[in-house]
Nucleic acid binder design. Structure first.
Lengths: 129, 129
DNA sequence: CTTGACCTTCCTGTCACTGGAAGCCTCATC
DNA sequence: GATGAGGCTTCCAGTGACAGGAAGGTCAAG
């Protein structure tokens, strides 16, 4: 399977797939003409990566998870630890964003949004007490 | 005021302040020795930037907001538009993260987290239907 | 006069790609 | 056999918003 077909099947851009090879996440074979040759296993790994990335795992987390995936003697505790770490970061990000949303929402509500210069949003950013 | 003092007062790292000058957000004066000389107005603008960044506005949004802030003849509608744009992006990010959290949370709950290899998290990432 | 804290510029690295240029390879058509 | 389209290759540069660090100038205190 060539990179174009794999890209279609996995939904990952060819650029991304090349990048994943670059950083040694996958190791497709090569044809005589230099084209990458993807085995079903490679495609499978790419799908795994796509799903893990969609869940927001970093590339390094993905590397760990992929290694665990391939390791038949893994302990599910190791997987769970990585996932929980990541979940914590997600939750912390959500909290940050919620705080931003609330503040910004209040400011927006308070702003007339007309052609006059007076604006609570700017007043707040400017440091009004 | 030198950069160190400004850094302390605004809470922004000196590196960040230099960066903001680099991209023309602020234009402090220079002493004869080449040191940056910050006027109260510069410090004020940096505080503005710090607060806007804390609300998650991009640098380009900050540039726009700062220009509006300085413009006495602005229309508050312009400010409100920028803020609402940003709010939408925040809300969309929150939704993405909530979806991730839910999925990941379910998977984590389903994972025994012991020393056995069987793991619903990996099963899902691997493409179990 | 030296020490240590502060300041300067410049270069590199981050993260996970994305865009683009320049140049092969392959297949179909004329 | 020439041509053209589309796919593949590598390599280089850019993204956002800085952070780290090297090499060197400046300043106040002891």
């Amino acid at each position: 399977m060539n990179i174009g077909a794999v890209s279609k099947e996995t939904g990952l851009p060819a650029k991304t797939i090349r990048y994943y090879e670059d950083i040694d996440l996958i190791k497709p074979l090569r044809d005589d003409n230099g084209y990458r040759q993807f085995r079903p296993r490679d495609v499978h790994m790419l799908n795994f990566l796509g799903r893990a990335r969609a869940l927001g795992f970093t590339i390094e987390h993905c590397r760990t998870l992929l290694a665990l995936y391939e390791d038949e003697t893994r302990a599910s505790a190791d997987v769970k630890r990585v996932a929980r770490d990541h979940l914590k970061q997600i939750e912390s990000k959500i909290e940050d964003l919620n705080a931003m949303r609330d503040t910004l929402g209040h400011l927006i509500d308070a702003c007339a949004g007309d052609d006059r210069p007076d604006c609570p949003i700017l007043r707040d950013l400017g440091g009004a007490s």
